[in-house]
C-alpha cells in the first residue's frame, strides 16, 4: 500500500480553479518534488494534503485512510506535518518552545529535542532566543525541526529554499537525507528545479494547476522539464 495516494484532486479559491485533477502516489521513504512556477498550484496541493484547504473533488488517502473528514490538527496525529511557506514560527515563543510545541501531538519516534538539536546545530545554538529574532535560515531549520518533533511519516515542505542564502539551502537539503533515513517520506514543493531534482527520487511539474510532467527525477530530461515549467508545447 502506498503511503500517500492523491486521486483526481481539484481545488478552488472561490470561483478560481487552482488545481485540475491532480493524481500522485508516494511510497514510504521516498522523496517527491513538485516543481512549478508561481501560481502553478504547488502550495494549494500541499495545503489540501495537510488539511488546511478542502478539495472540491477527488480524494487524499494516507496509509489507505480517506482523509476527507479528517481536520488539519488530526492529520498531524495521523503522521502528516507541513513546513509552510513563510515558516510561520511562533514569534513570542523561544526556539526551545517552538521545537517543543511541535511535539504537541505526542507521536513517538526517532525525533526528539536531542535528535533535532543534533540535526540542526544552528537551532541548538539559538535555543533561548525568541522566534521573533531568528534569521531566515534559522527560521527554516526551526520550522523543519518543529515539524519533525511530531515524528511524521510524511513531511511536506513548501518552498524549502525560498529567500535563503546558498549555504543555508545546502544545509537544509543535506538534512533531508538524514530525515528520510529515519523512514520519513518527503513531499517537496520547490521553484529551484536543480535542487529539487537532486534531492528527490521522483518529481512532477505543475503548470497552471495541471500536472504536465512526472517521472523519476534522474530520468526526466532537462529540456522536457524546462518546456513543462514554462508551458512550451504543452496543450
Amino acid at each position: 500500500m502506498a503511503l500517500l495516494e492523491i486521486k483526481d484532486v481539484t481545488g478552488h479559491y472561490g470561483d478560481l480553479q487552482a488545481l485540475f485533477g491532480i493524481s500522485l502516489t508516494l511510497e514510504k521513504g521516498a522523496v517527491h518534488s513538485v516543481i512549478g512556477a508561481n501560481g502553478a498550484g504547488k502550495s494549494t496541493l500541499l495545503n489540501i494534503i495537510a488539511g488546511r484547504m478542502k478539495p472540491t473533488s477527488g480524494s487524499v488517502r494516507f496509509h489507505g485512510e480517506d482523509l476527507s473528514h479528517v481536520s488539519g490538527h488530526k492529520r498531524v496525529q495521523r503522521g502528516i506535518s507541513l513546513v509552510p511557506e513563510g515558516r510561520r514560527i511562533f514569534p513570542s515563543l523561544t526556539v526551545e518552545e517552538n521545537v517543543k510545541v511541535g511535539a504537541y501531538s505526542k507521536r513517538s519516534g526517532y525525533w526528539n529535542v536531542d535528535t533535532v538539536r543534533e540535526l540542526y546545530p544552528l537551532v541548538a545554538d539559538r535555543w533561548a532566543r525568541l522566534g521573533f529574532h531568528c534569521s531566515g535560515g534559522e527560521l527554516q531549520m526551526l520550522a523543519i525541526a518543529r515539524a519533525l518533533m511530531a515524528n511524521p511519516d510524511l513531511l511536506l515542505i513548501d518552498e524549502a529554499s525560498l529567500g535563503l542564502a546558498p549555504v543555508v539551502v545546502a544545509q537544509v537539503y543535506a538534512s533531508l537525507g538524514q530525515i528520510t533515513a529515519q523512514g520519513t517520506s518527503v513531499l517537496l514543493v520547490e521553484q529551484d528545479v536543480s535542487q529539487a531534482l537532486r534531492a528527490s527520487t521522483t518529481a512532477s511539474v505543475l503548470l497552471e494547476g495541471r500536472s504536465v510532467l512526472s517521472g523519476k527525477s534522474d530520468e526526466l530530461q532537462r529540456e522536457d522539464i524546462k518546456n513543462a515549467y514554462f508551458g512550451i508545447g504543452v496543450q
Binding site: 495537510a50 488539511g51 488546511r52 481536520s71 488539519g72 490538527h73 488530526k74 498531524v76 496525529q77 506535518s81 507541513l82 509552510p84 510561520r88 514560527i89 511562533f90 514569534p91 513570542s92 515563543l93 510545541v101 511541535g102 504537541y104 501531538s105 518543529r146 515539524a147 518533533m149 511530531a150
Partner: peptide, 11 residues
C-alpha cells in the same frame, strides 16, 4: 501567536 500555524503542529 498564529492559530493557523498552531493547527499545523496538531493543536
Amino acid at each position: 501567536d498564529d492559530p493557523t500555524a498552531a493547527e499545523l503542529v496538531g493543536i
